[in-house]
């Protein structure tokens, strides 16, 4: 029996582990390796440069800028859709005419790709005939032709709004599922004990949604790391690097400037940052596990 189990285990795990190891773990290791070289991408000859790439990072103004933008992007791209999706789910979690229609409307953008979302929002932000400025003109009566995506102080946040619009539906669906999973008798205890609607939300509903939040945050982190696409489409990191993130910076260094060694160093740093996030996430997960099993 035990031998049987061992054989099956090996047989079943072989393929997934092989693929994952070869195309994820191994490249990750090589990334570390390249980060100590000055490889340019084509030339088979390259030199070891020690920690030179990392030394360059410390003095790279653009790297610092990209790191700050990445932090802003990650936090906003996780917090905004999560909060919005939670709000929508709380509103929708009741008997309402048209509830199915509302859910579909809020979910719809998830099916669209970053390329398409980017294009839609480029039209909305278009200075002359874009929807946003048109509405602003009508509402205020004044002239508005602000180029949202071409101004350093609005570019990143304009993309974040577009991103939130797209991602909200996913967290809404997960929170709705979480809300239906809250046992009715726990809410009845709130009634009997005299909890106000606010107390019920803060002290019972939100804590009980923790498992959903774990999933939402996980998916948001994954998706926001992929946020490369939408930034590439909408701003390309510009103007004047005002929406440049680490992923974009690394892409530019590696594939536009052909400094693969330096690009690898950036991805190593990006990876280390991700490890910190993962660490925090798993610590939270253990706490959740104790309570919810």
């Amino acid at each position: 029996m035990n031998r049987q189990n061992r054989i099956w285990r090996t047989a079943l795990l072989a393929a997934p582990l092989a693929v994952f190891g070869l195309f994820v773990v191994w490249p990750l290791m090589s990334s570390f390796y390249y980060s100590f070289t000055n490889w340019n991408g084509f030339n088979p000859n390259y030199d070891f440069v020690g920690f030179a790439n990392f030394g360059k990072i410390v003095t790279d103004r653009l790297f610092l800028n990209a790191t700050i933008n990445t932090a802003i992007w990650m936090v906003a791209a996780i917090v905004l859709p999560t909060a919005l999706g939670l709000g929508l789910a709380l509103l929708l979690d009741r008997k309402l005419p048209g509830a199915r229609f509302f859910k579909s409307v809020f979910y719809l953008p998830i099916c669209l790709s970053a390329v398409i979302v980017g294009q839609i929002w480029i039209w909305i932000y278009q200075p002359d005939w874009g929807l946003l400025n048109t509405v602003l003109r009508h509402v205020t009566g004044a002239e508005h032709n602000w180029a949202w995506l071409a101004r350093p102080n609005t570019a990143l946040w304009s993309v974040i709004v577009a991103w939130s619009w797209q991602q909200t539906g996913l967290s809404m669906v997960i929170y709705l599922a979480g809300l239906t999973g809250i046992p009715g008798d726990l809410l009845e205890v709130c009634e009997i004990e005299g909890a106000s609607p606010w107390q019920r939300l803060r002290r019972v509903v939100l804590p009980l949604l923790t498992p959903s939040t774990v999933v939402v945050v996980a998916l948001s982190v994954i998706n926001s790391l992929k946020g490369f696409d939408i930034l590439y489409i909408m701003t390309g990191g510009g103007p004047f690097n005002s929406s440049d993130t680490l992923a974009m910076h690394m892409y530019n260094e590696s594939f536009a400037k052909f400094r693969m060694g330096y690009g690898s160093a950036i991805s190593v740093v990006l990876f280390l940052i991700a490890m910190v996030v993962i660490g925090l996430y798993f610590r939270q997960l253990r706490k959740v596990d104790r309570i919810y099993g």
């Binding site: 490249p27 990334s31 991408g41 992929k226 490369f228 892409y251 690898s264 798993f282």
Partner: peptide, 22 residues
């Protein structure tokens, strides 16, 4: 399992260059 799942979180850009070379 944790190692596998952690793979979900790291930025795909980190393995771009090696994969390209491979």
């Amino acid at each position: 399992f944790l190692v596998l799942v952690a793979g979900m979180f790291f930025p795909p850009q980190a393995i771009l260059v090696p994969l390209f070379r491979m």
